Amino acid sequence: ELREAFRLYDKEGNGYISTDVMREILAELDETLSSEDLDAMIDEIDADGSGTVDFEEFMGVMT
C-alpha cells in the first residue's frame, strides 16, 4: 500500500520524489504545520541531503 502511494508521487518512475513534493504531502497531511516545521521535517527525512526522498525514506515517514 505504501509503495502504491509512493508511485503516485513518483510520476516519472525514477525511484524518488523531490523534497518539494514531500513537503506538499506533509502539508496536506497536517495543515497546521508551519513552514519552519516543514523545513525541519524535510531535513530529517532527507538525511543524506540529496534533495530527494527515496522509498525507504518515504516509508520511514509514513510508518
Rank of each mutant, 00 (worst) to 15 (best):
A47Y: 09
F58R: 00
E31F: 10
L38W: 03
T52I: 10
S35F: 09
L38D: 00
G15Q: 02
T52E: 07
T52D: 03
D54A: 10
L29T: 06
G49R: 12
L8S: 13
E31L: 13
F58N: 00
R23K: 10
E4K: 06
Y16C: 04
D30K: 07
G49E: 05
R7D: 15
D10M: 05
Y9L: 12
L29A: 07
S34M: 07
I45A: 11
Y9M: 08
E12G: 06
F55S: 02
E28Q: 14
V21N: 09
L2K: 02
V21F: 06
D20Y: 05
E12V: 07
L2S: 02
A47L: 11
D54P: 05
T19L: 12
D37N: 08
L33F: 06
R23I: 03
N14M: 09
E31K: 14
G51P: 00
I25A: 05
F55A: 04
Y9W: 12
V61R: 03
D37Y: 06
M59G: 03
A5P: 03
D37E: 12
D43H: 14
G60D: 12
A5Y: 14
D48N: 13
D43W: 12
S50L: 06
D43F: 13
T63A: 11
G49N: 11
E44K: 14
Y16Q: 06
A40H: 12
L26V: 03
E24G: 10
D10H: 01
E4W: 02
M22V: 09
L8W: 11
M22A: 05
L8P: 06
M41I: 10
R7Q: 15
R23M: 03
L2I: 09
I17A: 00
M59P: 01
K11S: 10
A47H: 13
E1T: 14
G60K: 15
D30A: 07
E4A: 06
R3A: 13
Y9R: 08
E4G: 03
E36C: 11
V21Q: 15
L8A: 14
T32Y: 08
E56V: 12
Y9H: 13
E4Q: 05
E4M: 03
L8Y: 14
G60R: 15
D43I: 12
